[in-house]
Lab assay of single mutants.
Amino acid sequence: MTEYKLVVVGAGGVGKSALTIQLIQNHFVDEYDPTIEDSYRKQVVIDGETCLLDILDTAGQEEYSAMRDQYMRTGEGFLCVFAINNTKSFEDIHHYREQIKRVKDSEDVPMVLVGNKCDLPSRTVDTKQAQDLARSYGIPFIETSAKTRQGVDDAFYTLVREIRKHKEKMSKDGKKKKKKSKTKCVIM
């Protein structure tokens, strides 16, 4: 069974824990209790493949930012979460993405942009803004509501699919490099 290491990042209060708990335990946590770091595991079937999701729910508070490099190193894919009623959390996505790329030393890291709290009427981040940002990053965008469960499975499952595509691409690139290195030079 394939294991996928997913990391949920975003500013404090955007609903990272609520999304994760909704996926794992099928219930909505409405009281806000700032996370330092929590880890969850769940076995699911995605596109006919049974897999184990190892999900790291991270601290959004700035005082825990020193811990970010460590979990970013171990993560295979990242859910970059903002709240649709919090423009600052949307603007912060850029910083999370840049930090992930720096730590992973790669421009090509599996990510999904997630606009959470889409059940709320007080939207300050337009869907088109988020779609445009995701398009500019070359990553999928999904709106979710941890409260109603809308888009929750889709967000995590899409990230797994992005990781699969990335692994497939990397193995193809690896095979191309191996083929090239088999060419021999004969000096007579």
Rank of each mutant, 00 (worst) to 15 (best):
T2D: 13
T2I: 11
E3P: 14
E3T: 11
Y4I: 11
K5R: 12
L6Q: 15
L6P: 05
L6F: 08
V7W: 09
V9P: 15
V9H: 05
G10T: 08
A11W: 14
G12C: 09
G12W: 15
V14Y: 12
G15M: 15
G15C: 02
K16F: 01
S17E: 01
S17W: 00
A18K: 01
T20P: 00
Q22I: 15
L23E: 15
L23D: 01
L23V: 09
I24R: 05
Q25R: 03
N26T: 08
N26C: 13
F28K: 00
V29D: 05
D30K: 07
E31S: 02
Y32V: 01
D33F: 00
I36R: 00
I36L: 01
E37T: 07
R41W: 02
R41I: 06
K42M: 08
V44P: 04
V44K: 10
I46N: 10
D47I: 02
G48F: 05
E49T: 11
T50F: 08
C51G: 08
L52T: 14
L52W: 12
L52K: 14
L53S: 14
L53I: 12
L53H: 02
L53Q: 04
D54L: 09
D54C: 11
I55P: 01
I55V: 06
T58A: 02
A59N: 01
G60F: 00
G60I: 00
Q61R: 04
E62T: 04
E62N: 04
E62P: 07
E63S: 02
E63T: 03
Y64T: 01
Y64W: 01
Y64L: 02
S65R: 12
S65C: 05
S65M: 11
A66S: 11
A66R: 12
M67E: 01
R68K: 04
D69V: 03
Q70G: 13
Q70F: 08
Q70Y: 12
Q70H: 11
Y71A: 14
M72C: 03
R73W: 06
T74D: 11
T74V: 10
T74A: 09
G75Y: 05
G75W: 05
E76I: 09
E76A: 07
F78D: 01
L79S: 08
L79K: 02
C80W: 02
C80A: 08
C80Y: 04
C80S: 04
V81C: 09
V81I: 05
A83V: 03
N86K: 07
T87R: 04
T87N: 06
K88D: 12
K88S: 15
S89F: 08
F90S: 09
D92Y: 05
I93G: 05
H95Q: 12
R97M: 15
Q99S: 13
Q99H: 12
R102D: 13
V103S: 04
D105S: 09
D105E: 07
S106P: 06
E107M: 15
E107V: 08
E107W: 07
D108V: 08
D108Y: 07
V109G: 03
P110W: 01
P110T: 04
M111G: 01
M111N: 02
M111K: 02
V112E: 02
L113C: 07
L113G: 03
V114P: 05
V114R: 02
N116D: 07
N116I: 03
K117Y: 15
C118E: 08
D119R: 14
T124C: 10
T124V: 09
T124S: 09
D126E: 07
D126C: 06
D126A: 06
D126G: 07
D126R: 06
T127V: 07
T127G: 07
T127F: 04
K128L: 05
K128A: 07
A130T: 10
A130N: 08
D132W: 08
L133V: 11
A134Q: 14
R135G: 12
R135A: 03
S136G: 08
S136T: 05
S136M: 09
S136Q: 14
Y137F: 07
Y137T: 13
G138V: 13
G138Y: 07
I139M: 06
I139W: 04
F141W: 05
I142D: 04
I142F: 10
S145L: 03
K147R: 08
R149E: 09
V152A: 11
V152T: 07
D154P: 09
D154F: 06
D154W: 05
D154C: 05
A155F: 12
A155M: 13
F156P: 01
F156T: 04
F156I: 06
Y157K: 12
Y157Q: 07
Y157E: 08
T158V: 07
T158E: 10
V160E: 08
V160M: 10
R161C: 13
E162Y: 08
R164L: 12
R164T: 03
R164W: 04
K165Q: 06
K165S: 08
K165R: 07
H166K: 06
H166S: 06
H166Q: 10
H166P: 04
K167R: 10
K169L: 05
K169E: 07
K172S: 11
D173G: 12
D173S: 09
D173V: 06
K175C: 08
K178E: 09
K178M: 04
K178R: 07
K178V: 06
K179M: 08
K182N: 03
K184V: 04
K184N: 03
K184G: 14
C185R: 11
C185V: 12
C185T: 15
V186H: 15
M188A: 05
M188L: 04
M188C: 06
